[in-house]
């Protein structure tokens, strides 16, 4: 039952990502070229509403369905790590015009190249797991 709920939220996510056009390679490309406000508008509204909503959920001590309070486990701050990781991710994001969420949604659209992209992402994840001891954290 619980898994079906998450599957259902995933369906909504796939539809939202499609109708917002955030899955479009072209939208991401024009964003990085600063030739449209569209993606900045989407991310900006999501972040501002996200901050307000999460603040309110904490403020009013909303209980989650798992009977916990809304919280976040903070990462320890390591500027070098965040910048290096973010930059690697950004290089791939701009090339593919897709971050992990849209990769799955685009697969649903029938763009089979995303099977290769998801395979690449899995290999990248595996490589991180192997070399992580040698990276700053």
């Amino acid at each position: 039952m619980r898994l079906i709920s998450f599957f259902a939220v995933g369906i909504v996510f796939g539809i939202v990502m499609t109708k917002s056009e955030a899955i479009s390679w072209f939208r991401i490309h024009e964003m990085f070229r600063f030739e449209s406000f569209h993606m900045f508008g989407i991310i900006g509204v999501a972040v501002v509403l996200g901050i307000l909503g999460i603040w309110a959920m904490k403020q009013f001590k909303v209980r989650t369905l798992r009977d916990t309070l809304v919280s976040y486990t903070p990462m320890n701050l390591n500027v070098k790590r965040h910048l290096m990781a973010g930059t690697a991710f950004g290089l791939g994001w701009a090339l593919l015009g897709a971050c992990p969420g849209p990769m799955f949604v685009m697969l649903g659209h029938g763009f089979w190249i995303f099977t290769i992209i998801i395979l690449g992402a899995t290999l990248g994840t595996f490589t991180y797991g192997v070399v992580r001891g040698r990276l700053p954290h």
Binding site: M75, R81, H82, M84, A85, G86, T87, A88, F89, G90, L91, G92, W93, L95, L96, C99, P100, G101, M103, I113, F114, I116, I117, I118, L119, G120, A121, T122, L123, G124, T125, T127, Y128, G129, R132, L135
Partner: peptide, 23 residues
Amino acid sequence: VLLALLGGFLVGFGARYGDGCTS
């Protein structure tokens, strides 16, 4: 195919090293 693998690799590696992606 090579670009797909390369781009995917960077996203997968960067997301795990940074412990998260766009979402």
